[in-house]
Design a protein around this nucleic acid. Structure first.
Lengths: 345, 345
DNA sequence: TGTTAGCACTCACTTGTATCGAGTGCTAAT
DNA sequence: ATTAGCACTCGATACAAGTGAGTGCTAACA
């Protein structure tokens, strides 16, 4: 069987209607929707075909039809094809200062959830490939040193470590010069034995401090790539969609959103992106996360300079407004990236 | 009417039973519960009295009784009186390093929620009264300075600011000495005009850098006391209690837990504490937060050194296991405070 | 006088049955 | 190929009857 013009029109009408109401839509409704261009009986015949082809399903006999995953998939693909290059609506963002990326991301998630009325998710950047930009030791107590590590992209990490033999102010100064001249611009992978032994040699009596610092640097970077930060917002928006908010499903979904480790699969899968924008749409069963097979998930990957990558996601009902979500995400990506670049300059 | 021995026994029996089952409890159940010491008829008479006195209510005629807020209040007060000085169970906590207080607090909330099966809430420390311990300027870019501010209690804040006229390395060194010798040990309130003008005088040509730094310090501290961090965990635990998990209530409660600004009233009210432990129990309507009038809330205030104060809270059904929660919170407070002190030493 | 057995009564909850109506599939007419 | 018409399906709603946990009250009892 062929998906001809009329079938497509009807399929789209069904999906649009279902998106608005959340109720199964019947043949008469569609007939009216197309200004009685075809009678309800005709529509019924076509619907029967569409069901056979797998684009729509009946929740039970004598009910209207609702789109299947395949139906949504068709619809989304259509949208992407048609509207890809349309001008996106302007959205006020107010990224004033990217001094604390973390808080910006949190606010972003909140904004996104509020704007779309779906749940939003945003993963903090992964730093693995990141370069060291600046290291500084300071004495903050008689027996404690503060290690400040600044990574490319101005991501700052602090650690306070106890030390046995405190260095003098001059020694600290020299150590700082030593550390920075040797390590600046290197990624964690590039800090190899060669570099380390050279540094130790230069450090002379305080070689063990070099070890201490390197250990901390390694752990700082490792710790961050291990417990990947994921912020969610607007989780309770799902209560706005009856098909998701029965107790069983709502509980499961909210639980998943609370335990961020379950969301890893979502932010990790950043490969097969569509059209190079890094945007991906999972409909129902397509989702890599178990608890979201009754939802649709749209993810987008952002990249702020070398190695600072993360994922933004929207989780909503299958009948989500894909058009709006895709547009919003695209706009957001652009804004985020340009705002960051501007700040960087 | 008087609350005699028997009435108290029966009231407690009702509350205990209701805590277990969550169902209204009838006279026969209680009769069996006290080993037929009194017949169901006697119990009925007593229950009638207890209802008249306001300690229990009937959801509808011909249903059993459930405790009223007043009943719970009585029970909680009893517990506090009786068991206050009992040895608390040991609870494995595993606070290894308090290097990043934030992540410790998050883990703590998670642990607490998991242990109790209620929702947990924990507010980050408020720093208002905190003293400056250490300040350091560094150049991280040709036109950018990093300001590291360490507060008493090793709470570290970073800010990157652009500067017009970059200082030389020597000048930065001197500026650091100037800043630390003048500011160390002062609270934000103690940094007055006198201190500032003295510093500027010493800074000479670079007086404007002093302004810059002070502004940042002020903002760092202000920003933190403004957007008070509150972490929640185990919010979805409320689905375990049918009386809270109908869609209307669950949605409302979860929404409140998500929007931390609504929780401020909870962590702010740290005055009228009971028995000096800083532990407070809100039952039903007593709660300062609107959405929690069907719950009970137990909060405890922790204090880690001067001016580092915060609140831990448990939110659960009115029939929560007060005994366990109070014990757990007390133990936690002790552990947290001693762990912190040990680290501090 | 306090306690208890007994009994009628209440009322949420469950189960069963009838009705309604939105929506379908099929057939026959156009 | 399209459409009007009709029998049929089935969830949803309403209502009635039955069930049982639990109560309040009364009268008997220690």
């Amino acid at each position: 069987m062929e998906l001809d013009e009329r079938k497509i029109t009807i399929l789209k009408a069904i999906i649009k209607n279902y998106m608005d109401t959340g109720e199964p839509v019947g043949s008469r409704t569609i007939s009216k929707y197309v200004d009685n261009k075809w009678s309800s009986a005709t529509i019924r015949n076509e619907m029967s075909d569409l069901e056979e082809m797998g684009y729509i399903v009946q929740p039970h006999t004598s009910a209207g039809r609702i789109p299947s995953d395949k139906g949504y998939r068709f619809y989304v693909d259509q949208i992407v094809l048609e509207k890809d290059n349309e001008a996106a609506e302007v959205q006020e963002l107010m990224i004033q200062r990217i001094d604390r990326l973390e808080s910006v991301l949190k606010r972003l998630a909140k904004l996104l959830a509020h704007d779309t009325n779906y749940a939003a998710l945003i993963s903090g950047p992964r730093y693995q490939e990141n370069k060291l930009k600046f290291i500084q030791l300071s004495r903050v107590d008689v027996d404690k040193m503060l290690i400040v590590t600044v990574l490319e992209g101005n991501l700052i990490k602090n650690t306070i470590v106890p030390v046995k033999d405190m260095l003098s102010d001059d020694e600290i100064l020299n150590m700082n010069i030593l550390l920075n001249s040797n390590l600046n611009g290197l990624t964690i992978e590039e800090i190899n034995l060669d570099v380390i032994s050279r540094m130790k040699q230069q450090a002379g009596a305080h070689a063990e401090v070099v070890d201490l610092v390197l250990e901390q640097v390694a752990e700082v970077i490792r710790a961050d790539s291990e417990d990947l930060q994921i912020y969610t917002s607007g989780a309770t928006n799902i209560f706005k969609y009856p098909e998701l908010s029965d107790n069983q499903k709502a509980s499961e979904l909210l639980q998943t959103l609370e335990h961020t480790e379950l969301l890893k699969d979502l932010v990790d899968a950043d490969d097969g992106s569509e059209k190079g924008t890094g945007i991906q749409v999972y409909i129902g069963e397509e989702s890599p996360v178990q608890a979201m097979r009754d939802c649709s998930v749209v993810t987008a990957n952002y990249e702020l300079g070398e190695g600072i990558r993360g994922t933004i996601g929207i989780i909503g009902p299958k009948r989500m407004d894909y058009e709006k979500v895709l547009k919003t995400l695209r706009t957001l990506m652009t804004q985020l990236e340009t705002a960051f670049k501007k700040e960087e300059r």
